[in-house]
């Protein structure tokens, strides 16, 4: 398309408003990357709109900055320095997320307290996992103990990584609870859409710089699984986790176009 025609079509104004459907916005962003003229146009639109809404502000809210900075400092402190991933957890809004994490603790406490069980046969472990899954499910339904249990949970070396929805499924969400000591990963996949026939979700451990994905397993029998909590082995030093949709049986390497959710382990 002719550049001037594109600019004068009015699409860029809608882009800056956020009034375009997501896939169109992504296309506009791609155009922006190729044409500095479009970037300039977008910047001017943005500048004009900034002036307009600034004029609608009752006053400059600069006095609020101090209060906000204090709140942020508090948040950072409560984030516990030696384990930055926890900071993320304090922000979780979803009660269900909390509840699942908490129940996980119940399970882990019992696992840790009985070391013999750890050495038990695979069969026992599976039964244990089933119990744990049951506990997580139960905890999703019980609100009362949350806060109290949460405090205990905080002391445990479990990293919770929220995985946000990506381009193919912006509404998707999953959480990984990773116990580094036992190399267990609990994937809470309740908010992933049911995969289509012949497809399965595959979970990847990621290391960054360079980005290297390592498969840690499949979320098999997804639709039959009632609580959608999957337990996988993760011996990797993961810096992030991703979930892609793959043909049944999984793939060697992730299909990036089918990346459903992604999240990084917080570090600072």
């Amino acid at each position: 398309m002719e550049l001037n025609q594109y600019i004068s079509s009015g699409i860029l104004e809608l882009y800056v408003y956020g009034a375009l459907p997501e896939e169109e916005s992504i296309k506009v962003t791609q155009e922006l990357k190729q044409h500095p003229e479009i970037v300039k146009e977008v910047e001017e639109i943005e500048g004009a709109l900034t002036q307009l809404s600034t004029a609608a502000a009752p006053y400059n809210p600069e006095a609020l900055l101090y209060t906000l900075q204090q709140k942020i400092t508090e948040k950072q402190k409560s984030g516990v320095v030696e384990h930055p991933a926890k900071r993320k957890r304090t922000n979780l809004v979803l009660y269900i997320g909390w509840a699942a994490s908490i129940a996980l603790l119940i399970g882990l406490v019992s696992v840790i307290s009985d070391r013999n069980e750890l050495r038990d046969s695979l069969e026992t472990a599976q039964a244990k996992n089933a119990t744990l899954e049951q506990q997580i499910t139960d905890a999703r339904q019980s609100a009362e103990k949350n806060k109290q249990l949460l405090e205990v949970f905080r002391d445990k070396e479990i990293i919770t990584v929220p995985l946000g929805g990506q381009d193919v499924a912006p509404e998707a969400y999953a959480e990984v609870h990773w116990d580094e000591k036992t190399n267990q990963v609990y994937v809470d996949a309740k908010d992933l859409p049911t995969p289509p026939e012949g497809k399965e979700y595959q979970v990847w451990s990621l290391t960054l710089d360079p980005l290297t994905p390592t498969s840690i397993g499949l979320l098999s029998n997804f639709s039959e699984d009632e609580n959608k909590i999957f337990i996988l082995e993760n011996p990797n030093s993961s810096q992030g986790f991703g979930i892609t949709l793959e043909p049944k049986g999984g793939s060697e390497t992730p299909t990036m176009e089918q990346l459903y959710t992604l999240g990084t382990v917080q570090s600072s």
Binding site: L49, S53, A55, A56, A57, N60, P61, E62, L65, L68
Partner: peptide
């Protein structure tokens, strides 16, 4: 905050 707060405040107030 310095850069975006006042125009954001305008939107919210409107």
């Amino acid at each position: 905050y310095e850069r975006y707060s006042e125009s954001t405040f305008g939107v919210i107030y409107s």
